[in-house]
Amino acid sequence: MKTLLADFHIHSLLSPCAEVEMTPHHLMLRAAAAGIGALALTDHNASANLPALIRLQEKYPVKVFPGMEVECKEEAHLVVLFDKMHQMAAWQQQVDKALSGRLNQPEKLGAQFVVDEKDNLVREEPRMLLGPLTLTAAEVVAAVNKLGGLCFAAHVDRPAYSLLMSLGFLPPELGLAAAEISRNSLAELQEQKLKARVGNLPYVTNSDAHWMQAFLDGPKNRITVRELTIKELRLALAGKEGRSWQAGVFIDN
């Protein structure tokens, strides 16, 4: 078993709302220096900066999970995680078909940059990545679970883009693995006021960083697993077979 700090919700400069300092190389450099053992890159409805990050695993002792922050039809955010890039590629194909078809307006919404592992510009993403897919939350979770991935509802405590706020309560049959509590509401980890409404899902906490300092300062998880796989993450969330998942942990504690 190993115990490590992990952050499963981070944006790169492909997300229009993220700062350009959020390059794959910068992220891995700072994650390694801060002792982060695993992270997931989760750009809005996109995964094009993941190949660079995956390659950088050879250089830095940080495990990368292919991830995405998906906006479902109900205008709420779901974080999806996979083991392998081929699973993400299959998921991205479904996402591409479900995008709005609008083009990004970089001056108004922010630019969307794809870069390589040396932070060189590869291209700008022309499609508008922000906005809801035509897939419902139920369709997203079912498709991701079928591909062997894992989904959690992002920042359920927040007034906007929260599946809990959109739907009033999280239906247990949805198939979510966890609910994320944002850094603004960490008291909820003890108070558990929303716990019944999220269907008693385990809580996770991540930085949801859009700039570097937010990544370093933001909440993480201390997880104990045998190896870094989706299967092991599920065991850790369930607290089974010696695995564990502690939310509300920061780099300095």
């Binding site: 109900e74 419902t136 939350a137 809990l164 706020m165 959109s166 739907l167 009033g168 309560f169 239906p171």
Partner: peptide
């Protein structure tokens, strides 16, 4: 309201609710 959590807190018995949400939770609320 299209936020079901908001409708849960604000709508009152006997009212008619106008929404753009078609999720099954609408019927539950």
């Amino acid at each position: 309201s299209d936020l079901l959590s908001n409708a849960m807190g604000q709508a009152a018995p006997g009212q008619i609710w106008v929404t753009m949400q078609g999720h099954p939770n609408v019927a539950a609320v």
